[in-house]
Computed example of a mutant assay.
Amino acid sequence: MKTLVIVTHPSLETSVINKSWVEELKKHPEKYTIHELYKVYPNGNIDVEKEQKLVESHRNLVFQFPVYWFNCPPLFKKWMDDVLTYGWAYGSTGDNLKNRKVAFAVSAGIKKEDYSENGRYQYSLEEVLVPFKITALYCNADYRSFFAFYGAEYEPSASEVKKSAQDYFNFIENL
């Protein structure tokens, strides 16, 4: 079974980092299904049953998005609220994420040193992403951490972008 990568970027076509990650993964269609939420649901009306069946048909699950205001884009939050339902994702009969490997891949505009106790924002990216980790754990998923690119706002070089895409590919390969 393939890995499902749910990409939630409101303007993927103008993205540098997320777009390069998607392009890298698309080189391996036998391994990865790329599911772009903003492309599939431009009006925000999520087909819950379709999404649940899509998740069920994949072994691993990776959520890819840019960090927005120290959180996720709104469509990803809506996707979680709509799709991760009681009886499907959690609860006495909700076991569709149980033991499924779940990871996150995020691009952060801010530099890594700003995400630290002594940095500008006083919290690490790991701390900022705790609600996503807790969600995965609450659903009894096999949480596998996150992959991050820091400093996307600072116009990374072509070699940094390329290395990031290769590192991302390796991260997913080793879930």
Rank of each mutant, 00 (worst) to 15 (best):
N118K: 15
E113D: 15
D114W: 08
P73W: 06
Y32D: 10
L54F: 05
K39F: 00
K101P: 14
L97V: 08
L97D: 03
H58F: 05
N118F: 12
S107K: 08
Y121I: 02
E126T: 15
E126A: 15
N99Q: 10
K50P: 00
E51M: 00
G109K: 09
P42I: 09
V102E: 11
E49D: 09
V128D: 10
F70H: 06
N99S: 12
Y86T: 09
I34V: 14
Y41P: 06
K111N: 14
E56T: 13
T85N: 13
R59K: 13
Q64V: 00
M80C: 11
Y121V: 00
V48A: 00
W69D: 01
L84Q: 03
V48Y: 04
V40P: 09
E49S: 10
G44A: 08
K78R: 13
Q64A: 05
G87K: 05
P74K: 02
D114L: 03
W88C: 04
N118S: 14
E56S: 13
T33V: 07
L125P: 07
D81W: 11
N96F: 12
F76V: 09
N43C: 11
K112C: 08
K101F: 04
Y123D: 10
P74R: 02
D47G: 07
R120K: 14
F63R: 07
G44M: 04
G94W: 01
K112Y: 01
W69V: 06
A103M: 13
M80K: 11
Y41R: 06
D82K: 11
Y115N: 09
E127H: 05
N45Q: 13
L125R: 07
P66Q: 09
V102C: 08
V83G: 01
A108S: 10
R100A: 01
A103T: 12
Q122D: 03
S57C: 06
G109S: 05
S107Y: 13
T85R: 12
A105C: 14
K77L: 13
K50H: 04
S92N: 13
D114F: 07
S57H: 13
H35P: 01
W79F: 11
A89S: 14
Y121H: 04
C72H: 07
K112R: 07
L125T: 01
Y41E: 06
S124Q: 00
Q122E: 06
A103V: 15
K98L: 04
N43P: 10
S92C: 08
L61S: 02
V128E: 10
D95N: 15
Q122W: 08
R100E: 07
V55F: 01
K101V: 01
V106Y: 14
V102N: 06
N71V: 00
Y115G: 11
C72L: 15
I34S: 12
G94F: 05
E36G: 00
S124W: 00
Y121K: 00
Y86D: 12
D47Y: 03
K77T: 15
Y123Q: 05
Q64P: 04
E117Q: 12
Y68H: 07
R100I: 07
T33Y: 11
G119L: 03
N118H: 15
K78H: 12
V128W: 13
